[in-house]
Computed example of a mutant assay.
Amino acid sequence: MLRHFQMFADYNRWANERVYEACATLSGEDYRADMGAFFGSAERTLNHLLAADRIWLKRFTGEGEAPTGLDAVLFEDFAELRAAREAEDRRIIDWLNGLQEAELSRIISYTPISTPTKVELRLGPILAHVFNHQTHHRGQVHTILTSLGKPSIAIDLVYFVLADGQRWQ
């Protein structure tokens, strides 16, 4: 399973790069436009993904910055957000590369931001959630992009494995 999660971290980096490349073509107005996604705009959705990843990594490692809200706009400037996303993706990859398989069974205790009830889960299922969460919201950004007339981007896992991710076959 550890290798599987390492692949997802690499895929996550790859897919995020493509989404950010596509968002870089948006005007500032379109980037910030409320398009009806859960967090409204591409800007707010991309900020949410970074905020969520920082929250999870803080829970896993005890290190790093973690916002107190899931709707935090960490960076209004697109270039700064993009650089922070790239750094966070590298941080996730590096952290996973330092794990041992047995650590996936470690219990993680935390209190969700959205509800004040303590939760205890094994790391493995939480990691599955983290990567699924990324895919879910990247899909929303993809919908925003195509709603604004931008071309569809190929960010499916199989495209990653066939291109940059061949080492995961």
Results as ranks from 00 to 15, higher is better:
F160H: 06
T111A: 07
A163E: 13
L26D: 01
V130T: 05
L57E: 06
I107K: 13
T61F: 01
L162W: 15
A22T: 14
A72C: 04
R44D: 08
A87M: 11
H136L: 12
R13S: 13
D53A: 10
N16L: 02
Q134I: 01
L104H: 11
V158K: 06
G149C: 02
L49K: 04
W56E: 02
Y159S: 15
T45Q: 02
G64W: 03
T68W: 05
T115I: 10
I55M: 06
H136E: 03
T146W: 05
D53M: 10
D10C: 10
A52M: 10
R90T: 15
Y11R: 09
A22D: 04
W56I: 06
Q169I: 10
L123G: 01
V130C: 00
I93N: 01
R32S: 03
T111K: 08
M35P: 07
H48Y: 09
A33V: 08
Q166D: 09
D71Q: 12
E76A: 11
R138D: 01
F160Q: 05
A42P: 00
V73Y: 04
A37C: 09
I126D: 08
R3S: 12
Q6E: 14
R138M: 02
G69R: 15
M7P: 06
Q169L: 10
R44N: 11
E101I: 04
H137F: 09
A72F: 09
T68R: 13
W56A: 00
L50H: 01
L157F: 13
N97Q: 12
E21V: 07
D164K: 12
S41K: 01
D71P: 06
Q166A: 10
V130E: 06
E17F: 02
R59N: 06
V19R: 00
T115E: 14
Y31C: 03
E101Q: 15
G36R: 12
L162R: 15
P67G: 02
N132I: 13
H48S: 04
A51Y: 03
L99E: 02
A15D: 04
S109W: 09
G64C: 10
F78P: 02
A84C: 11
R18L: 15
N132T: 15
E120H: 10
R3F: 04
L123R: 00
E65R: 08
I113K: 06
L157M: 12
R32E: 05
L127D: 01
D34E: 11
L50V: 11
D156E: 14
G28A: 09
G165P: 00
E80Y: 03
R32D: 13
A51E: 03
R54Q: 15
N132C: 03
